[in-house]
Amino acid sequence: MSRAVSSVSGEVSAGRRLVLHALGLGGMAALAVAAGLVPPARAAEEAPAWPKNAFAQKDQAHALDALYGKTLEASDKVSLDVPEIAENGAVVPVSVTTSLPNVTSISVLIPENPYTLAASYRLPEGTEPSVSCRLKMAKTSDVVVVVESAGKLYGAKKQVKVTLGGCGG
């Protein structure tokens, strides 16, 4: 198989730099939560609402800030499975799984898309920390996944090449 499940090795350190850099704002918000200035997120049983503001953000930092308000660290416990070259940018299969405990959400971001946040999943207790879906990619981009585990955010990323299609098959 010509592609590997991510997310160990050098790729992660690159990912960490990018994500940490991008998360300046998120870091501030996380500090605010930690300091008890902002109430913690939703109660467990409350039905969460569609995060409108997060889906409207055009860059990763603002999207993550709107969604979580926390800092992100790269983790080799987050696995992202995406193709190296998408067969069609309109349908890119994305699978995320993690060995991290107490996962409450998994989100997928595509920084080069017009709006960065593609999908965000809420996982109640008892749901396995693994999800597969199909996403659109406007052009070659990283796919960034974020796993919320025990209140902290862990990430991994991998590049997917998107080329012009419409000729073969």
């Binding site: 039905a47 946040l117 593609a118 999908a119 809420r122 109640p124 749901t127 396995e128 879906c133 199909r134």
Partner: peptide
Amino acid sequence: VFTAFWGPAVSKDPYLKFSFK
């Protein structure tokens, strides 16, 4: 057991797979 929040970047005729206990 599962909630998906989607934006316009999810593919046409969307597919989803997950597992729960």
